[in-house]
Structure formats: structure tokens, C-alpha cells
Nucleic acid binder design. Sequence first.
DNA 1: GATATAATTGAGACTGAATCTCATTCTCAA
DNA 2: TTGAGAATGAGATTCAGTCTCAATTATATC
Lengths: 141, 141
Amino acid sequence: MVRPVETFLKYLDSKHLKLTRERKAVLEEVFFHPGHLEAEELTHTLRSKKSRVSRATIYRTLELLVDSGIVRKIDLGHGHSHYEHILGHTHHDHLVCLKCGKVIEFTDKKIERLQTNICQKSRFQEISHTVQIFGYCKDCR
Amino acid sequence: MVRPVETFLKYLDSKHLKLTRERKAVLEEVFFHPGHLEAEELTHTLRSKKSRVSRATIYRTLELLVDSGIVRKIDLGHGHSHYEHILGHTHHDHLVCLKCGKVIEFTDKKIERLQTNICQKSRFQEISHTVQIFGYCKDCR
DNA sequence: GATATAATTGAGACTGAATCTCATTCTCAA
DNA sequence: TTGAGAATGAGATTCAGTCTCAATTATATC
Ligand SMILES: [Mn+2]
Ligand SMILES: [Mn+2]
Ligand SMILES: [Zn+2]
Ligand SMILES: [Zn+2]
């Protein structure tokens, strides 16, 4: 079992940052939300619960969560960012339905290996990658 | 030899749209520019030449060029779109250097095939895809 | 527990890309 | 040549995301 709060705390300590009520609220919401969430949505969800966290702090905290490796920022082609927790989850990429917006996750070790090969050929040091396939899902095609 | 103007004309006709001086200027500039260009850059380049085309028309025309399959809109993680001509060019994907911004193009038939397989498994109809690898190029690592 | 210090927060101003509005101008088929 | 519909440009608008700064809070030390 992975403990996101402890991971975050460790990260914060290493940067001499503090674990505030607001940061804890964002972390918990992001971590226990199952899918791909957006900042605006997060603002509303938190407001409807006990916590009231400003937009500025939401964005600031999401950045910290990305830096600490707990969360990944992704672009699903909606004109704004989405976030998903990755701590304790295996890496995956996305099929994105252009009609209903559904996102299907997939993992393909062979593709990953071929990407590594490509980087080696160009002596390129990979930090991250995205494989996004846009189209129509089986219900929308 | 591919003739972008004719392709564009055919597309415009099919939609009952007109080939204006402005649209021709944007098409030519995009098509003869070798790399990945941004809308703002295009505005300036055209202004420094004979043609003066408004921002609104630049964006409107780029959309038409994308629709007609002449140009591809890509996201290199800069917070705004880039465009590259694809008519007469083979499909490729990108390595993006996070330090110097260099973009290295690559083509990998095996990755493409694996992507097709993944779509089949989910009965997903692919329209487009992007494989972007972010990291540091050999000069920046 | 009190105190000091540095970090954090929120309200709202600001930015930059992209889109929209609408009065004027242009294209092209007839 | 002309008319109907399409296109343009200036500038207003939108929207996500960032920044500013005065007020607040977390934590280490006493
Ligand atoms: Mn996902
Ligand atoms: Mn390219
Ligand atoms: Zn769908
Ligand atoms: Zn580089």
C-alpha cells in the first residue's frame, strides 16, 4: 500500500515547504478521485465539501504534486490540463474518443521498448512521454 | 510533386468557400516554411513580406488547412499550438528537448503497427495520434 | 506554551492564446 | 456588371493559468 501523504510530506520537507490544510485537502481529493480531473472541477468538488481552497492554491498544489511524482499532468486535447494520480499505478497511455470524450487506458510494453530504442539512437535522454490516440470509441464510431 | 494550392482549392470548392488573397498568402507561407511554426510567428512573417493578414484570418485559415489535410496542428508543450505541413510528407512523431526546444522527428513503423493493434482490441477507430517524447537532446543532457 | 521567521494563502489583477462580433469589403457565378 | 453570400480586420471577449501583495499560518526554537 502506497501512502501518498507520506510521499508528499517527504517531498515538502526536502524543499522546506509546509504541509498545510489546503495542500492536504487537494492531495486527498486528487488521490481518491478515480479518473482524470481538471483544476476547475477540483475547485468545485472541494468547495462542496468542507474545504475551500482558492484557484491559485489549487494550481500551485497541483504543480507540487506533479513535481513530487504523485500526479501526472496530461493533455487530452480539451484546451486545458487534466491530472491523474500515478503513485502506485503502472504507467499507461490513452485512447481519447472525439465524440463522447471517453478515455481508455492501455499499456504496451513493446511500444515502450521501441520508444527507448528511438531515444538511444538519437542519444536523447527521455524524461516523459505521451502516446495519445484520438478517434471514435466502439460506441461512437 | 504535390500541389498544395490545388488541394486547397478543391477543398474550398467542396465547401463553397472562396480562395482569397489572404488564404493564398497563409497557405504559401506555411507550405514553404520548413519546420514547426506558430500563429504569431506567421503573422509577423507575412507582415514583413507584402501581405498583411489579421490574426483572426490567420487562425481561421490554419483551421481550414488542418481540415483539408494539408497541415497538422501539434502541441509541443509550449502552451500554444504549432503547425506543420504534412501534404506530401510521410507521417512522423517527435522528440522534444525540454532545454533548447529542439524538435527531432522520427518514424517507426513498428510503433504505428502496435498502435493499430491496440485500437483493434478496443474496437476503437483511430483518426489521429501523437507520440511525443520529452527529455534532453544529446547537446543538452 | 510563547515567539520568531519564513512560508502560505486568497482576492483579484493580469497575461497570452485563441475566438467572436459586426460593419465593411471582396469573390465569383450568372 | 452585378448581386448574394462569403471573407476580412479591428478590437472586444473568453478562458486557462499566473502573479502580486497584504494578511495569515506552520514549524523550529526557546
Ligand atoms: Mn490515465
Ligand atoms: Mn514534425
Ligand atoms: Zn465515444
Ligand atoms: Zn536540447
